[in-house]
């Protein structure tokens, strides 16, 4: 066969670990926006309140937390007004769990489409991250409103220049959810057991993260374990930035960033390997 023969596509039994076609991913950018649009547009179709539901969920959760953790359990909020403290934790955690859960569902939820049409499979989890981001921003506006209210009515809040790290914090939050989601979605195609683990695992993980309590309220001997959780540092940095009450550490944040990059990298490699064969096992 002529070696100079030019083929646009060569399908082989196995792809290399790092053989990720980024150009192809870019070619399908319109599909990405269409998926994001689909997720956002169809979510509240035929509902009366529509997008208002984006606000109702965090507000209700916040009210419950204020009642249960704030007033019954009397867990400290480091002097920050309770609604603000819980709301900041809730919206960040929501975004993480949305990224993680939706990404982890990639193969099982889309087996039908994947079985009929080829497109870069990474488009689906990426679209979930982006539609989650839109939802996050809407909820962030809610947080901002509550924040400004307390900012001008009380003296308990002292924001810092760390505010500018917000994009990085959001990136890390999404990245960890994305990376772990990719790993779990790849594993669930073969071992369906993980589906059950994911369901309550994310909930349990929330209690291992300073969402409803400040890091400072943790006894010193457990602090090491809580700090091992990279999300801890992200949430603490966020609280330091906006509320001035967190337990911010640069090393912690760098650890979280490295963790994020490694998880994304591993996730993409495993996902890339799984997507070639998953139709036969799912």
């Amino acid at each position: 066969m002529n070696k100079s023969e030019k083929w646009d596509l060569i399908i082989k039994p196995k792809r290399g670990l790092l053989d990720i076609n980024l150009k192809q991913l870019y070619d399908y950018k319109d599909l990405l926006t269409m998926f994001v649009k689909r997720d956002v547009v169809t979510l509240y179709k035929q509902t009366i309140l529509g997008p208002i539901w984006f606000f109702v969920q965090p507000l209700m959760t916040m009210a419950i937390y204020v009642f249960v953790f704030g007033n019954i359990a009397k867990i400290s909020t480091d002097g920050v007004p309770q609604p603000l403290f819980y709301l900041s934790g809730i919206i960040l955690w929501n975004y993480f769990s949305e990224c993680f859960n939706k990404t982890a569902d990639t193969f099982t939820q889309n087996a039908n489409i994947f079985g009929k049409v080829f497109f870069p499979r990474l488009i689906i989890p990426l679209s979930k991250i982006l539609s989650g981001l839109i939802k996050f921003f809407i909820q962030f506006l809610l947080f901002l409103a509550v924040f400004l209210y307390y900012y001008f009515t009380t003296n308990s809040i002292s924001s810092s220049l760390l505010l500018f790290s917000l994009p990085v914090l959001i990136f890390m939050m999404a990245g960890i959810g994305f990376g772990f989601g990719l790993i779990f979605s790849s594993l669930t195609t073969k071992y369906k057991d993980l589906k059950f683990l994911i369901q309550f695992g994310v909930q349990l993980l929330m209690y291992a993260t300073p969402v409803i309590y400040p890091l400072s309220s943790i006894p010193a001997k457990y602090q090491f374990w809580i700090k091992l959780n990279p999300i801890t540092h992200i949430i603490e940095a966020f609280k330091t930035a906006f509320l001035g009450s967190g337990h911010f550490s640069m090393y912690g944040l760098i650890y979280a960033l490295l963790f994020t990059l490694i998880v994304i990298f591993l996730g993409i490699i495993i996902f890339n390997k799984t997507e070639q064969k998953f139709m036969d096992t799912v």
């Binding site: 596509l9 060569i10 399908i11 082989k12 196995k14 994947f114 080829f118 064969k277 139709m279």
Partner: peptide, 17 residues
């Protein structure tokens, strides 16, 4: 399915332009 890249072959190759 193999030609349209939905699943990958066990052996052999497909080349396309």
């Amino acid at each position: 399915k193999l030609i349209s890249q939905i699943t990958s072959p066990t052996e052999g190759t497909i080349k396309a332009k």
